[in-house]
Amino acid sequence: MRWDGLFADLEAQLAHGRWQDTETEAAELTRGERASIVLADRLRGAIGAPLTVMLEDGQRLQLTVSTVGSSWIGGSDRSGSLVLNLDAVAAIDSPLSVTTPESSPGRRHLGIGSLYRSLSRARAGVLVSGRDGRVLGEGTIDRVGLDHLDLAVHPRDEQRRGRNVRGLRVIPYGAIHLVRSAHTSSV
């Protein structure tokens, strides 16, 4: 009868070993799945939520996320609407615990150029800030290339009219970290 106890003990050890193998495999699969998550998907899970974002220049923005592209975040803060280049983000003070992959293949590949083209079509007055926090220009986006945009320089709270335009500035996307909407003034 002593053999029965030995066999039961061996069976228990085998079952425990299989469970450990299953746990190890599950942990490895979880790590592999996490390794494929991109920041944009985590930010998409925060749509509608307030975030604190630290930019490369040390500036901290408190914004509410409204849309997320493959390389940019759209949202608003106390000053109005804005678009952030994800490359300019140094840190985000939020756990970003929900992951929401983009379900549309077409939208998944919309880069920041598509957003700039939309702003250009809308003739929206904008303020463009560079990576060091300096203002690169304010006015209206006239043309959008593959890796740069042309900004008609004028006060962003004025219409783009010939008399208001002070020049044309070509700005590479890589130099831009933030684009803000025009302030609306109440008279």
Score class of each variant (00 low, 15 high):
1 M>T: 10
4 D>F: 12
8 A>M: 09
14 L>V: 08
18 R>P: 02
22 T>R: 08
24 T>Y: 06
24 T>A: 14
26 A>S: 03
28 E>A: 15
32 G>H: 09
33 E>K: 01
41 D>N: 00
45 G>L: 05
46 A>L: 00
51 L>N: 03
56 E>W: 10
61 L>H: 10
62 Q>H: 12
63 L>V: 04
63 L>H: 09
63 L>M: 14
70 S>N: 13
72 W>K: 09
73 I>D: 05
73 I>P: 07
74 G>S: 06
74 G>E: 15
74 G>A: 10
75 G>T: 04
81 S>N: 14
87 D>I: 00
92 I>T: 09
92 I>V: 08
94 S>P: 00
100 T>V: 12
101 P>H: 00
103 S>M: 14
105 P>I: 02
111 G>C: 02
114 S>T: 10
114 S>I: 12
118 S>R: 15
120 S>I: 07
121 R>Q: 11
123 R>L: 11
125 G>W: 00
128 V>G: 03
132 D>N: 14
132 D>V: 07
133 G>H: 14
134 R>W: 10
134 R>S: 14
140 T>R: 07
144 V>R: 01
146 L>G: 03
147 D>P: 05
150 D>W: 05
150 D>F: 12
155 P>A: 11
157 D>C: 05
158 E>S: 13
162 G>C: 00
162 G>M: 01
164 N>Y: 07
170 V>M: 02
171 I>A: 04
176 I>S: 04
178 L>P: 01
180 R>C: 06
181 S>L: 07
183 H>K: 15
187 V>E: 10
